[in-house]
Every structure is written in C-alpha cells, then in structure tokens.
C-alpha cells in the first residue's frame, strides 16, 4: 500500500511536469526561438559603451548577472557556503587534531611528490586566471577558488595533512583568510554607498557603475585594462574565501578516524 503511494507520487510528479512541458508551460516552443525579453536586456546591457548609466561593463553576461544585476543573490549564496562550513566546524568542535613536526617520511613516493611540487604552482596560476578574468571570460571567483583548493588537496594526499599544517595552512589561519576574503566582498558591496555618503550623492548597496539617479560608481578601467568596477574585486575576494573554505573542509576530513573515535570515547567516559 505504502509502496504504491510512493510510486504514484513519482508517476504524478512526472505526469505533471510532462503536462506542463506539453502545454507550453516552459515556453511555447522548447527550446524557444529567441531569448526572453529580460535576457535580451541582460545581453545588451552587460557591456554597453553607448549607455553609460545602464551597464555592468562586463562582456561576460553571466558574471555581470551574478555579481552586478543580481549581486545580492551571490552575496547570500556565499553566506550559505560560509554557514555550511561553520556548521561543519561546529560539529567538529572539541575534536583536537594531533600536530606532528616530523613529516618527511610520510606520504607517497618521491616521484609523485616531485610532480606535485611542479603542478601545485600551475594549478594556482590557472585558478588565478580563471578568477581574475571572470568578468571577461567564463569563470569567476567561485570557480577559481574551487580550482585553487585542488592544490592543498593534492598536498594533503601526496605529502600528508601534517605537512600542509606545517606549511602554515592551519585551521585558524585559513579561517582568518576566509573571513578577510568575505569581509572584502562585504566592503565591496558597500563601496559605492560609502563613496556616495562621502560625496553626498545618492547611491545604493551593491552599486557598480553610475545610475541615472545615483551618479557614483567604481572605475571600470584601471589604465587600459577592463576591471568592470566591483566585479574584479568580488571575484578576487571570492577566490580567497572559497579556496580557504574548501581547504578547511579538507583538513577536517583529513583527521584520522581513529583519533576522533578515541576522543569521543574518552569524552563519553568522563560523563
């Protein structure tokens, strides 16, 4: 009986979705012949030198939506990721990881270690290019940060967790780095407003380029290179925050299971 109900729900879910598609609920034509009007606005005004008060000054339409048109979403998306890591850290509260200084003998063979030494630098370089060109080409802060986090993950696997910690990438340091990155994002979100307050001109939270009713904005160019105002800073800080966040997670998952179980057992005996 219960199994039947479950099956029925799944079937009805698929039926409803199929009906919606069939009756044109996802667009009269799937896929549509042209993009929707709102999407056309985004495409036209993402990088538009002919309308200086209605543009994000970024040729990458997705990045301009992510960090400018709908920047608020992305700030809180970052907050969600941050809170998830805080929740995970809170679960590991009181679990102390052993620290070792003698770590040369740990890890995989010298061949792998040498290769890793070379590739780590390349990974970081690729990550930086993904993040810092996010406003020009596909990519962005989160993608760059996630790529950069592969480097510490490799070190963790090839050399050992203790080696990574001895490099200075300890939990507290990473958390501080992460907070600095996130605060950078927050400050960038408020930057135009702060400029506006000082210049006594109207301005908005998350403002990037000047608007008709708020004539302040951040410079779109530094010298000759396009930085799209706030977008470059957002991507830059996001990369740090994301890379540090992922590394904290890897460090937590890298604590040997036996150590944790021993500590939990000791705690249980105390109570």
């Amino acid at each position: 009986m219960r199994r039947l109900l479950g099956l029925l729900v799944i079937v009805l879910f698929i039926t409803l979705f199929a009906l919606v598609i069939a009756s044109g609920g996802l667009g009269y034509e799937v896929p549509p012949l042209r993009v929707r009007e709102l999407a056309r606005q985004f495409l036209i005004y993402a990088y538009n030198p002919f309308n200086t008060t209605f543009t994000a000054k970024s040729p990458e339409a997705v990045t301009s939506i992510v960090w400018d048109f709908r920047g608020l979403d992305t700030l809180f998306e970052t907050l969600v990721f941050y809170l998830a890591i805080i929740g995970a850290l809170s679960l590991y509260r009181g679990v102390e990881s052993e620290r070792r200084t003698e770590v040369i003998s740990l890890g995989l063979s010298p061949i792998v270690k040498t290769v890793t030494k070379v590739t780590t630098g390349i990974i970081i370089a690729v990550a930086a290019s993904i993040a810092l060109h996010g406003h020009l080409t596909p990519g962005g802060g989160f993608q760059g940060g996630a790529t950069a986090a592969v480097a510490p993950l490799l070190i963790l696997i090839v050399f050992s967790k203790y080696f990574l910690e001895n490099l200075g990438l300890r939990k507290n340091v990473l958390l501080a780095l992460r907070s600095i990155g996130l605060l950078g994002i927050g400050m960038t979100a408020f930057s135009a407003l702060i400029v506006g307050l000082m210049a006594n001109s109207p301005a908005y939270v998350f403002q990037n380029q000047p608007k008709p009713d708020a004539p302040v904005g951040l410079p779109a160019y530094i010298g000759d290179s396009l930085i799209s105002g706030t977008l470059w800073f957002f991507n830059f800080f996001e990369m740090f925050a994301v890379a540090a966040g992922f590394t904290v997670i890897f460090l937590l998952l890298g604590i040997p299971e036996g150590e944790i179980l021993k500590q939990l057992k000791e705690e249980a005996e105390e109570h």
């Binding site: 985004f42 990088y47 030198p49 040729p59």
Partner: peptide, 8 residues
C-alpha cells in the same frame, strides 16, 4: 553569452 569583441 560572452561578448568577444572588446570594442563593439
């Protein structure tokens, strides 16, 4: 959705 031309 990426504009490749730098001076459109």
């Amino acid at each position: 959705p990426v504009l490749l031309n730098p001076n459109p």
